[in-house]
Structures are given as structure tokens and as C-alpha cells.
Amino acid sequence: MNPETFLQLDRVIHEKGRLGIMSLLAASPDVAFTDLRDALGMTDGNLTTHIRTLQEAGYLSVAKSFQNNRPLTTCSLTAQGKKAFADYINLLEQIVQQNRGNK
């Protein structure tokens, strides 16, 4: 197997928590902060930290609005985030395929 493939994996997405956030957001146009927290079983602080990291990488955008007079924070993937996630999946598939070829 080409070790280069493994080294190309995006370190920002590669972390377990952030990968979970990216996966959930990749399947929906936007997801509320509370829904992300409940789905991933994270604490508010932990989720906020990961969201900030993804935001700084330009992969995720956060929108704040009001629903029924209550603040609502929603997250969505940016175009850059969608591309980075697609590249990450492609690389994982390559790793699996390469190993199948070696067997």
C-alpha cells in the first residue's frame, strides 16, 4: 500500500468528534447545535471546540437565528467543507481498495 495515501488524510476531519460532525452535516443542508450534540453524545463545550476548529479551517459555517423567540444555532458545511469531506471519503475508499488488491 502506498503510505502517501494515508498521509494525505485531512488531519482536521480525521479526529473522531469532528468526523462525526462532518458526517452528520454532509447528509443534511443544516443541523441545529442541539441536534448535533444529542446525535453525537457530546457536551456543549466539546462540540463548541470542534465546531470552532472546523470553522477556522473554513469547512463549516454557523448561523444564529430565533425560533419561537428562542435562539437557534445551526451549522452547515461550506463548499470547501463538502469538498474536503468528499476527498477524505475517497482517500478512505482508496486505502480499503488498495488493501483488497494486496490480499
Binding site: S23, L24, E93, V96
Partner: peptide, 15 residues
């Protein structure tokens, strides 16, 4: 990698 892909698929379906 295969396990990660499975987790991603599950999370995307869940979402």
C-alpha cells in the same frame, strides 16, 4: 478505514 467508512455511513443515514 473500512470501520471509519461504516461509521460515516451510519451517521449520515442517522442524519
Amino acid at each position: 478505514a473500512a470501520e471509519n467508512l461504516q461509521v460515516i455511513r451510519t451517521l449520515m443515514e442517522r442524519s
